[in-house]
Every structure is written in C-alpha cells, then in structure tokens.
Nucleic acid binder design. Structure first.
Lengths: 206, 206
DNA sequence: AATTAAGTTAAACAAATGATTAAAAAAAGT
DNA sequence: ACTTTTTTTAATCATTTGTTTAACTTAATT
C-alpha cells in the first residue's frame, strides 16, 4: 500500500497560494477556477482533485485568512496582565503590520463580515468570544471608576477596528486623491500604530 | 413620429430599483441578470432592451450610488462659512442618516473605492476635489495656528470616514457578537452623529 | 520487474449566464 | 381604422464556468 507523498511540496500548495491571492483580492464569485489554474500553472482538474470544489477551496482559504486575522486576538484580549490601553496599542501594532504585509486581507475580512449578514454560519461563537468579554469588562470597569466617559463598548470596538482597518480599504482613494504613493502610504500606516492608541485614549478620557 | 413615452413609469424604473438593491447588496459578479429580472418581475430581455447590457445597468447604478454618496459633499467641504468642526458635525449627521436609510450603500462604496485600485477610471478628479482642498487647507491652517496637533490631513480624512462608514460595514458582527438588535443598532448609529464630532475634536486638540 | 496507487492531462459535459432574435402585444400617431 | 412605433414575450444562441471522465504518466510498494 503506497503512502501519501509530496506532502510538503508543490501542486496543492501552488493552488492554495494562487487561490488565496485571487479570492482575497476579488472575492468568491469573481474568481474563476480557470483563473486559479492558470495563475498557479496547474491543470484545471487538479483543483477538484485536491479540493473537491471551488467552494471547498474557498472555505479553506477563508479559514486561513480568518485564522490569520484572529491569531493572537484571543490571547491578547484575554490577557489579564494588560490594561485596556496596552491592549489597544498591541492590537494596532500587530494588525497594522499584518495588513502592510498582506494588503488585501482587510478587504477580505470586511467582505466576510458583511456577507455574514446574509449567509450566517461564519460568525459563530469562537475562542475569541470569551476573551473579548474580558476586554469589554475592563472597559466597563473603567467607566464605573469614572476614568473614562460612559460609552457602549461596541463603540470602542467599532472605532478601534475602523481606525485600524479602514485606511487599508480606502487605500486607493488616499493614493489617488491625496497624492500619496505606495511608500508614503506604508509610512502613514506605520505612523498610525502610534497614533491610534493616543487617539482612542483622547476619545475615551474624561 | 411617436414621441418617447412612459418616461416616468414602470418597467425601466422597476429594473433599476431591483438592480440597485441587488448590486448594492451583492456586487456585480454575484448578481445575475435573471435574478434582476425575477426580482423586478420583468422579462429578461427587457434588461438588455433598456440598458444594453448588465455592465451598462451596473454603471448607472454605480453612478447613482456615488452621486448619492457625493451629494452635498462638495458644497459642504467647499463652504467657507463653516469651520472644520462644523463640517465634521454636518458630515456625520448627513451620512449617518443616509446610511441608516440605505444600509447597503456603505459596503457598495467601500467596494467601489477598493476596486478602483485595479480598475482605475472611477476615482477620477471630480467636483469634490476642489472643495476637499478647501477643507484640507482649513486643517492646515489650524495646525499652523497651533490649535491642533500637527497631522497629515489624510489621517483625519481616514478617521472621519472610518468612524462614519465602518460600523455599518461590520454591522453583522456587532449584531451577533455584541447582542445588538436592529433597532439598537440604529440607535447606536444615531448616537454616533453626536459622538463622532466630539471624538475627532478630542483627537485633534492640543 | 510487476503491481498498485497517486498525480496529471486533455477532452467533454452540464448547467448557468449574458445576450439576441423574431414574433406578438400594446400604445401612439395619423 | 390604419399605420407606425414602442414595449413585451418566449425561445434560442453562444460563452463561460464548475465539475467529471477516462486515459496517461509518474512514483511508490512488493
């Protein structure tokens, strides 16, 4: 009986890499199987051979992208050693670096969240839920201690995520309209790693 | 020679309404012509009769959505009577109301901007460009007067847009994870009309 | 070397999809 | 009433697209 071979190597991984790029960039419907095949230099049938279907491949990519997005989130939010501001700072640093490396990821995430409005199953409870509650409780405590203004934690979540993710999503607009080139854009995003925590602090404090 | 008839009425408008809903909700590739036909209760061929092609119809919808987005933007930004904070306040009020009424518009806008990264032609200079410069100059002046911290105007643009638009885009996440129902969500967005200007002010001030 | 399994390929299939056609129905003009 | 134009319909076309098949090649196992 032959055993599985080529576990590390090429074909399967090549397909995934091309698919990741295309799905992340253009979404599910706009990405065609033949495009993935061509992009990865493999025969069309191999997509189905390795991944059963386009949807199956997409699910894997989505899972990986989401894992990449969630990675560290649970631990960070759940860490009882760090205060709210330290968490925000770490969050901004981690994700902005992640998004600079993988610039299509923000739009993919946004699309995935948005689609969850219709195709629900994606936003199930997961390992981040419990730790997010710890973070939310830290905020509530600050409010109770009158250290920050009374505010619904969802506002803070929205603001943090918006300030971190949104500029990447409207990158093309900034680049065209504000005459920012790619390099300057990256510099600006790096600046935001420091600015966002400060901004949020100013927003919250009494 | 017969003249054009039925200018106001049904068929053409019905197609546009259904198409607007679908395109705005699901984007171009995922929206099928037969779906538009069914949704609007018309014969499939009428789509091509009135709009030549799916792409033609999409372009019209996009133009309208963008017009709806840009409407007032130019006048508001260009208004020399209003100071920066007054503009931000008006902006938040106007767009949040717009997005509450038309909840799929934010995602459509974000998608359109993002796609412009590849398919450039959409983000051409338009009537908003000149007036945006007026706004940017007002910011620069505040910086020069030491009234606000030195900051690249693109940061402020990003932050304003992010704070206004982003919560709508991640609505599904907030609803599921933060146990916010549709009504509470709308209330929260209304709250933001007042909060966003205050937040931005705190962020900017020395 | 012979056998078995895994990987790859070109071709084809079936369904989906955007678009067109030709004929009919409805509306407008004369 | 008759003609012309506009609108609508059902059927069909031509591609595109996801998937499958069957043959072929390569690699592993005995």
């Amino acid at each position: 009986m032959p055993k599985k071979l080529n576990k590390d190597a090429s074909t399967e991984e090549k397909i995934k890499q091309a698919a990741k790029r295309l799905f992340t960039q253009k979404g599910f419907a706009e990405t065609k199987t033949r495009e993935i095949a061509e992009e990865s230099g493999i025969n069309l049938a191999l997509l189905n051979y390795y991944f059963r279907s386009k949807q199956g491949l997409y699910n894997i990519i989505m899972k990986e992208n989401m894992a990449s997005f969630k990675q560290g989130l649970a631990e960070l939010f759940g860490d009882t050693q760090l205060d709210v501001y330290q968490k925000i700072e770490k969050l901004a640093h981690y994700y902005i670096d992640e998004f600079i490396t993988n610039p299509d990821l923000p739009m993919f995430i946004v699309n995935t969240i948005y689609m969850a409005g219709n195709d629900s199953t994606i936003l199930e409870e997961d390992e981040t839920s419990a730790s997010r509650k710890i973070f939310v409780n830290q905020i509530k405590e600050l409010v109770a201690q009158r250290k920050i203004k009374p505010i619904h934690p969802a506002h803070i979540l929205s603001n943090m995520m918006g300030l971190i993710i949104f500029p990447f999503v409207i990158g093309p607009l900034l680049k065209k309209r504000a005459n920012i080139n790619d390099k300057a854009f990256v510099e600006m995003m790096k600046e935001r790693k420091k600015l966002i925590p400060v901004w949020i602090k100013s927003m919250l404090e009494n």
